[in-house]
Design a protein around this nucleic acid. Structure first.
Length: 669
DNA sequence: AGCACGCCGACT
DNA sequence: GTCGGCGTGCTC
């Protein structure tokens, strides 16, 4: 007789906890249902993860009531959330609460929602005839869906090569077999245009999960999926937990996008969760990107994923020409430091004067400032980590955010002895005002987080640009993604260096991705597109490879570096952040914890290879945030699950020093 | 996390 | 003597 249940709670504490089931409720208890349980001094919502015949501890309390008639979590979802909690160092309860709609967290069962299903009319679209490369990928994917054999595919297709058509036809395959599909897209590309592509092919079978839906509306969509009414789910990160029936296919579009990583506990990566979910369900997972993450491409090369390449644009459209402008030449020509080179200024003028449009990218300075030489482009880097040093205004020092190494900022360039050291990151705010000054009579629109706060303004700016009410669109990251306007003749990148020199080992990768995405915006119609990229580092492999649209070349250079430095994909990183009001205390405790970790790792046998490593502590990139000082410790390891066990053991020994808060981020970005 | 327990200094 | 500071430990 199952007289006890094991229950987890949505708090950052390990469970599960045992409760006795009152006789009245015996017939109703089931794994996956929510229950009200007495926990310490109050009642809380818990999730039943197992039934048992006996309790593991004494003084077990009885559960108060059972909330659900039907379980909100099936066995697959329990397995997925359990895995997430172990891999991403959260509690099982926290992982579960990330996986269910907000409306279910406080024990509610029904939410009044205005259902305005207003049967929107969508144009019907049909399958396009696949290219040979598309067909090759589809044949394999469909066969695996048909035979329920879990596999992950990496679909590497250049911009404009028709990845979406592959997704659509694969979903079609699944649907014919009576199976459901989940499509993950990055938050920013969850636009009406994207959604429409799926709705126009599959009509009412599609449910959409935005983060901006009202809780009620979100819950409605969730129920529509749970009941089996919707068989296709399109949504951002958390849509990976959609309660679909008979999952056949999971698509992760733009799999390299950072928005797939949740930034608070549980700090999961939706791509990894997607792969795990497909594995549990015996489904197929398709990762798609023009610029795959190194992690995914490496796995594919190692044989872990099936690699499918779409290396030509549909209708054999040419890739746009990318011109790299060497800003050191401008310097040598003796001109004052200017924001726009002649080439960029003239390029924009030419496009606009011939009645076409231009897009200008600003990479916001963010929080860090690097130092480089205006004459030779040399950037000051850390001796030990090869990471860009960040200039700290208060200390007047250059700091490494990995190992805490410090240096004085050089007065003359260590490489060429030039005397113009440039404190970069300053002055990028001026770009927009410069455009108004230079392109006087042109209609200029700006799109960034400041100008798109108001609801609908995002859409308005884009439609103005689409309808040619604007000549020039100036914007940050958000204009790089997915814009498809045939009138764009020129795309300019003001400074590739701001992305390149952030003190982060992924900066080269991000720069290559950004430039490739940007280049993909030009020449979508009949006009041949052109891209102008300004940089002080024209020979950097990320920039040179982006110029040639050559992912393979970028991948070779990047992996070479990462292998040497034992960075992902050759090792996993786990970041432990300590936070506290007192700078000294926080540093002291971080030193203590890293010493404990080092001592514990010394005990592991040398047979365990590669040996895990402790790096730091070092101040976080934003060392002081809202009156808290933050220090990071990094662990490098091959096996996250194993490392997490050791970390848990050490953190238990470390205890909870008062006023110090710790957070763990596995595979941080 | 969140909260009660307990053991120290400043007050009616 | 007791109010309250926050450091410690536990939650089935």
């Amino acid at each position: 007789m199952k007289n006890f249940v094991k229950v987890v709670i949505g708090l950052p504490i390990d469970g599960p906890f045992d409760y006795a089931v009152p006789e009245m409720l015996r017939s109703q208890v089931a794994v996956g249902k929510r229950v009200w349980v007495p926990f310490r001094y109050k009642d809380m919502v818990g999730y039943i993860v197992a039934l048992s015949e006996a309790a593991d501890v004494e003084n077990v309390k009885p559960l108060r009531s059972i909330i659900d008639k039907e379980p909100v979590l099936d066995s697959e979802m329990l397995e997925l959330t359990k895995w997430m909690s172990e891999y991403y160092f959260s509690s099982w309860g926290e992982a579960i609460e990330a996986a269910i709609p907000g409306g279910l967290k406080r024990g509610r069962t029904e939410i009044s929602a205005r259902v305005d299903d207003g049967d929107e009319e969508f144009e019907r679209s049909q399958n396009l005839k696949p290219t040979p490369a598309q067909k090759n990928a589809l044949d394999d994917i469909c066969k695996d869906i048909h035979t329920n054999s879990y596999h992950t595919y990496l679909l590497h297709g250049v911009t404009g090569s028709g990845k979406t058509e592959v997704y659509l036809q694969a979903i079609g395959c699944a649907l014919e077999l009576g199976k459901s599909s989940i499509v993950l897209v990055p938050e920013i590309s969850l636009t009406p245009q994207t959604v429409e592509r799926f709705k126009s092919r599959f009509h009412t079978h599609v449910a959409v999960l935005h983060s901006h839906l009202t809780p009620g509306r979100r819950f409605e969509e969730w129920k529509k999926v749970k009941s089996g009414e919707a068989r296709i789910v399109v949504g951002a990160r958390s849509a990976i937990f959609a309660p679909v029936k008979d999952l056949g296919l999971v698509v992760v579009d733009e799999e390299h996008e950072n928005s797939y990583k949740q930034q608070d506990a549980p700090r999961y990566h939706a791509r990894e969760a997607a792969i795990k979910r497909a594995e549990i369900a015996g489904a197929v997972c398709v990762l798609g990107s023009a610029t795959p993450s190194l992690e995914s491409y490496y796995r594919a090369k190692q044989g872990g994923y099936k690699l499918k390449e779409l290396s030509e644009r549909i209708e054999k459209r040419p890739m746009p020409e990318v011109e790299i402008v060497d800003m050191r030449d401008e310097e040598r020509a003796g001109k004052k430091l200017r924001i726009f080179s002649n080439a960029l200024e003239k390029g924009i003028m030419k496009a606009l004067d011939s009645g076409l449009q231009a897009i200008l990218f600003l990479n916001r300075r963010g929080f860090s400032t690097f130092v480089n030489c205006r004459k030779c482009g040399h950037v000051v880097k850390c001796k030990h980590c090869d990471s860009t040093l960040t200039y700290h205004f208060q200390k007047k020092k250059l700091l490494c955010h990995w190992c805490n190494w410090q240096a004085d900022p050089p007065e003359i360039c260590p490489a060429c002895e030039g005397s113009y050291m440039n404190y970069f990151g300053l002055g990028t705010e001026k770009v927009e005002s410069e455009t108004h000054r230079i392109f006087l009579n042109k209609r200029i629109g700006r799109m960034d987080t400041d100008t798109t706060q108001k609801r609908g303004s995002h859409k308005r700016i884009l439609s103005d640009f689409k309808n040619r009410k604007l000549d020039l669109l100036v914007g940050t990251q958000m204009v790089a993604k997915g814009l498809d306007y045939p009138g764009v003749a020129l795309v300019g990148v003001v400074s590739a260096d701001t992305a390149l020199h952030v003190p982060d080992f992924r900066s080269g990768e991000r720069t290559f991705n950004l430039l490739t995405q940007v280049a993909g915006r030009a020449g979508r119609g009949d006009v041949k597109g052109k891209v102008v990229v300004q940089t002080y580092t024209p020979t950097h492999y990320a920039i040179a490879a982006a110029k040639k649209h050559d992912y393979a070349r970028f991948y070779r250079s990047e992996t070479q570096q990462r292998r040497q430095l034992k960075l992902p994909p050759f090792a996993h990183i786990i970041c432990i952040t300590l936070r506290g009001r007192s700078s000294e205390k926080t540093k002291q405790e971080a030193d203590k914890l890293s010493a404990l970790l080092r001592a514990r790792l010394k005990k592991i046998p040398p047979a365990y290879f590669p040996k895990p490593q402790v790096v730091g502590p070092a101040t976080a990139i934003i060392p002081r945030l809202r009156m808290h000082y933050r220090w990071n410790i990094f662990l490098k390891c091959a096996d996250v699950m194993w490392m997490n066990k050791i970390l848990k053991e050490v953190l238990t020994k470390f205890g909870k020093p008062s006023g110090i808060y710790t957070a763990v981020d596995v595979d941080p970005l």
